[in-house]
Amino acid sequence: VVKNIRTIKGRQRTAWAPEGLIAEGSRTVSDPNTGRVTEVEIVVPAWIYNEVVNTEKPEILTMHRDYFLLDGGIARFVYRLARRAAGRTSAEWLFRTLYERSGSTGTFKEFSRSLRTLIQTNELPEYMLSEVAGKAGPLLRMAYRGTILEGEA
């Protein structure tokens, strides 16, 4: 919200102008022959732009551009979790907890198989994935690729 205070004839007045939370506006361009969208333009609010570009430690969680190339909801879910939980270090989560938080409609066994496939392909942007034995079951370790973990050096 942009606040503008001004004085008119000795009386102070406050005006409020709301800013968009996600986008100030958008524009799409389509091919007239096929009807397919060829361009999408989204105008980002100034507060988001300033937070990402002009702040040393932005409080907005950014995504790696390859996030949008990930296939499957589980890969995207794990990437978003890694960004939040591991950041530039590492984090571990029980497979069971991940399953419960993911909202997956499949069985736990299917979810675990998908996680193990994701670990094997190891194609998550910015993060290395590994399975670690835990007391309560298997753990997914998410480590930022710039981090060397104990025992891996």
Rank of each mutant, 00 (worst) to 15 (best):
R36F: 07
E150A: 04
Y67E: 08
R36G: 08
D66L: 08
R116F: 08
I48Q: 05
S114E: 10
D66E: 13
A82R: 05
I22Y: 06
P32F: 03
Y79R: 00
A91C: 12
T55S: 11
G151D: 07
I60T: 13
E56P: 01
L140A: 11
Y99S: 07
W47M: 02
E131R: 13
A143I: 03
T55I: 03
M142I: 09
A153G: 08
L70W: 03
M142R: 08
E51M: 04
R65Q: 11
E39M: 10
V44Y: 02
I42A: 06
I42K: 00
R11A: 09
L70H: 05
R11C: 12
A82H: 07
S90P: 03
T147G: 01
R101L: 15
A91V: 02
T55F: 08
L118D: 05
A82K: 03
S112Q: 08
W16N: 15
R116L: 12
P32R: 01
E131N: 04
D31F: 03
S104K: 06
R76N: 13
L118H: 08
F95V: 10
T7D: 09
T28L: 11
T38N: 00
E41Y: 03
K9P: 03
R116H: 11
R27Y: 02
P45F: 03
R88D: 12
G146A: 12
M63S: 02
Q12W: 03
T7E: 15
A153F: 00
P32T: 06
L98G: 07
D66A: 14
H64T: 00
R145K: 06
R141Q: 14
N122A: 11
G72W: 03
L98T: 02
E126L: 11
V40T: 06
Y127W: 14
W93D: 10
R84V: 07
V132F: 14
R88P: 01
T121E: 15
P138F: 07
A86T: 12
A133F: 05
S90Y: 15
E123M: 08
V1C: 14
R13T: 05
A143F: 05
I5E: 13
D71K: 13
T38L: 02
F77Q: 06
S104V: 05
G151A: 02
A153R: 06
E131A: 13
N33M: 11
P138I: 04
I148L: 14
W16M: 10
V52G: 04
